[in-house]
Write a protein that binds this DNA or RNA. Structure first.
Lengths: 277, 277
DNA sequence: TTGACAAATGACTGAGTAGTCATTATTATA
DNA sequence: TATAATAATGACTACTCAGTCATTTGTCAA
C-alpha cells in the first residue's frame, strides 16, 4: 500500500515541525496532494496514523540497537557501539525522534502511552542485558540505577542535537559517555532503585509473541514485499517455524538477509529473540 | 487581585491532568465557578495565563534553589542540599512541574519558549557557580559536561516521581546523586562540550535587570500585599535602593524577611543577585 | 465500446474552540 | 435613598477540526 507510506512520510514532517496536536488532517492531505477522503481510506483515524508511525519507527530503532548489542563480540567496544548506534539511528530518524520526545509524556491517548511504555521496556531490557554482560555480578545492587543513568544520558544529549541542530561529533560523544558509564558502574556504592521500586514502576510486560503470531506476521510481510532475496528468506523462515529442519547457522544467515530491509527489521528482531541468537 | 490567583490555581490543576492544549477556557471558568467574561477581565488571553503561570512558579523555584546554593556554607553539604531542595521544591509544585516537563519542548508559542529558555539559563548559571565553588579549576575543561549531567540527573529522576507518583526517598536519592556527581566531576577526562558548542547553544542571555526596574517591581509588590513585616521590609529595601544608608547586615536581614513570602521570592532573588550576597 | 468494479473526491455535518460585548448585578459614594 | 462607577455575566460570532458519504473519476476485462 503506497498511499499509507506517503501519508506517514508527509505527516511525520508536519508533526515534527508543529507537533501532533497542532497538525490537522487537512494539512496532511494538502501536503500529500490527496483528498481528505483518501486519507480515511488509508487510516481509520488520526490516532491510527500516530500509532502506525510509532510502531514503524520504534520497531526499526529498537531492532537496530538490539542487533548492535547482540552482534558486538568485543566487550571493550560494546558500550561505544551501543551509544554510537543509538545516536546514529535517532539521527537518521530525526523527525520521528522529535515527535517521540515531544509527545512522550503527553497523555492524550491511552493506547499511545501503552505503546511507548512497551518500547521503553524493551529498550530497558536491552540495556540491562548489556550491563549484565559487561559488569556481571559486581553491579547487581546498582544495575537499575545504571539503566536509568544510561537512559538519562541518552535523552539529555538527544535533546541537544535534535533541538539545536548542532552538528555533533557522535564519535566523541559516545567515547565521552562510555567513560562516564564506566565510572558510574565501577564506583557507585549508593543504590537508589530497590527491587520494590522497580516493580512498582514497571507494570507487567506485554506477553511474549507466540510462534503462531510470528508465522502470521511473516505471511503478511511476504505479501507486502516484491520478489527478492528477502522474500525468499522470509518464506524459508516461515517453513522453519512450521517444521524445523535447518541448522542454526542457516537460520542465522537467513535472519542476516532480512535484517536491513526496512519492512523486516521488526520480524528480524522478534526472530532473534525467539531463537535466542 | 484575588481573581487572578484563583484562575491560576484552578487552571494549573487542569493543565497538569489534561495538558495545556487540551484544556479549554470554558473548562477553567467552570472549574473556578466564574463566567467566561470574568476570565477575560483577569487575563487578556489563554497565552497570557500560561506565561503568568510559568513566571509565578519558575520565579519561586529558581529563587529557592539559588538561595540554598548561596546560603549553604559547608561545601560538603552543598551538593546534597542542592539536589534535596530541587526535588523538594518541584515536589511542592508537582502540578506545575508536570506541565513544565510536558510542554518544555512543545513549540506552540514563541514567547513561552523564550521564557523557559531564560529560566533554564538562570538555572545553568546557578549550577555552574556551584560546580566552580566545589571543584574549582580542576574541572575547568569538563564543567559544561557536568552541568548537563546534573541537569540530566534532575530531569530523569524528576520524571520518575512526577509520573509514577511513587513515594520517593528524597534523602537517599540526593545522597545517591551526590556520589554520582562527585564521581563524574573527579574522574571524567573526555570532555564533550567545547566552548564553541556552548556558545552555539546559548543565545545571548537577556540583559540584567536595572536598579530602576527593581524599584518599579518593589513598588508593585508593596501595593499587592497587606500590612506585614514583609511589606515594611520591602519599603525599607526600596529606600535603600534610592539612597543607600543601611549596612549590608541589615539589608541581608531584610531580604531574609521577605524570602519566604510567596509573592516576594523573585524580588528577593533579584536583590540577592544585585547585592551579590 | 461497454459495463462493472474500485479508487478518489470534497462539500457537508456536528462538535468544540477563543474571544467579544451589550446587558445586568453589585458596590461605593454623596 | 439615589446615583455613579465598577464587576460579572453568558449568549453570541467567527472559526477550526475530525470524520462521513453521495458523487465522480479511473481501470480493466469482455
Amino acid at each position: 500500500m503506497m498511499k499509507k507510506q506517503l501519508i506517514m512520510e508527509k505527516a511525520l514532517e508536519l508533526f515534527a515541525n508543529q507537533g501532533i496536536e497542532a497538525t490537522s488532517i487537512q494539512q496532511i492531505t494538502e501536503h500529500c496532494g490527496i483528498s481528505k477522503g483518501s486519507f480515511y481510506l488509508a487510516f481509520k483515524s488520526k490516532d491510527e496514523l500516530i500509532l502506525a508511525l510509532i510502531d514503524h519507527f520504534m520497531m526499526q530503532i529498537t531492532s537496530n540497537i538490539d542487533y548492535t548489542v547482540r552482534n558486538t563480540n568485543d566487550d571493550k567496544k560494546l558500550l561505544f557501539e551501543f551509544y554510537y548506534t543509538m545516536f546514529h539511528t535517532f539521527y537518521e530518524h530525526s523527525d520521528f525522534a522529535k515527535i517521540l520526545i515531544k509527545e512522550q509524556v503527553q497523555s492524550f491517548n491511552e493506547e499511545l502511552i501503552v505503546k511507548i511504555h512497551y518500547y521503553n521496556r524493551l529498550n530497558e531490557k536491552i540495556i540491562l542485558s548489556m550491563i549484565e554482560r559487561l559488569y556481571g555480578e559486581e553491579v547487581e545492587p546498582i544495575k537499575y540505577d545504571l539503566i536509568y543513568n544510561i537512559k538519562g544520558f541518552m535523552s539529555t544529549y538527544l535533546q541537544l542535537f535534535l533541538f539545536y541542530n548542532a552538528p555533533l561529533d557522535f564519535d566523541l560523544l559516545s567515547q565521552s559517555l562510555v567513560e562516564k558509564t564506566n565510572l558510574l558502574a565501577r564506583h557507585t556504592t549508593i543504590p537508589f532503585f530497590s527491587q520494590e521500586l522497580i516493580e512498582m514502576i514497571n507494570q507487567p510486560m506485554k506477553e511474549e509473541v507466540t510462534k503462531e503470531q510470528l508465522i502470521e506476521m511473516i505471511e503478511q510481510k511476504i505479501e507486502e514485499i516484491e520478489e527478492s532475496i528477502e522474500k525468499e528468506s522470509l518464506i524459508l523462515l516461515k517453513q522453519q517455524l512450521l517444521e524445523p529442519t535447518l541448522v542454526p547457522a542457516i537460520v542465522k544467515g537467513l535472519l542476516e538477509n532480512i535484517r536491513n530491509h526496512p519492512h523486516c527489521k521488526w520480524i528480524s528482531y522478534l526472530l532473534r529473540r525467539y531463537y535466542e541468537f
